[in-house]
Amino acid sequence: MPISRGYVAKRLMLSALVILGVLAIAFIMTRIIPARPEFLWAGPHATEEQLKMAREKLRLDRPIYIQLCYYLIDFFRGDWGISWRTRLPVLNDLLTALPATLELVIAAFLLASIVGIPLGIYSALNYGGLRDQVIKFVTVLGASTPVFWIALVLQTALGVWAGILPAGKRVDDYLVYVTGFKPITGFYIIDSLIQGNIPVFLDVLKRLLLPAFVLSIYPLSLSARMSRSLMIEVLNENFIRSLEVWGVPQREILFKYALRNAIAPVIASLGLSFGYTLVGAFMVELIFVWPGLGYYAGMALLSYDYPAVIGVVVLVAIFYSAINLVVDLVHAWLDPRVRL
């Protein structure tokens, strides 16, 4: 594995720097934008006394960088502030919402790679043919569709009109009440299986299907297009020709040699589309009333709940940096030509 320990350490430091930078920008923006942050903090009917307390609590009389330092100290202690909307610690809120989003995003990415990569390879093997053209067109179409629109269309058509799939929420409240289902990890699929609660499991699965599919459309198209063009490129390389000349069976060439070379960049690009998908998840969550990070962020924005906004932004930045690092490491591990 051509990855040096020094490289990983360097990357981790850089990620920390980037996250700190994002935090600082977000903090400064949310302190500068509102004309009088203490009004938001204390509420609309606050007395002069309460406003004064709020000012002291936010340290608004100190320069902005001092405020930032205090915020950072609290931040590393695990105190990410109190949400102005829910009146609960932001970190708690985020950790409750995180599994819902992750369940959705992971399902979407699984769908994208399980369907997208074989689709792209199939397309490459039929290069120039009718099937290739059709697949190419469909994947370009998929990459051109706004996620909020297709979510609305499918939700209305399949959920509301046809009634085939439930149109929103993670699980039926009545079913939860009747069967006594309790969230443990927050991943409802896992939770219901642990408890052997089959009715809830089926309900959760059914409700996950539509939002996950909608969210997967973009990464699915991306992975199909990437794996198609990479497969074509690899199959044209000289080592494949020499393998053919040596009489290696075509199936073996395809799955043992070509695929390994084509798959690494596909995984890299899928990983890099994670940030985009996360923003997509925000909209899908709003439309499907899915109580994840996006729903939380949306509500926080509507109520100018700045501690919650900063929390979401920093969490997203952490995830983004982590994914980037993992993608690069996996890339190096799969492709021996990459040296880090």
């Binding site: 949310t30 934008i33 930045a317």
Partner: peptide
Amino acid sequence: DMFLAFPPLLLAIA
């Protein structure tokens, strides 16, 4: 890199 990691959503809101 920092700008790349910054969600466009927050910039738009700001």
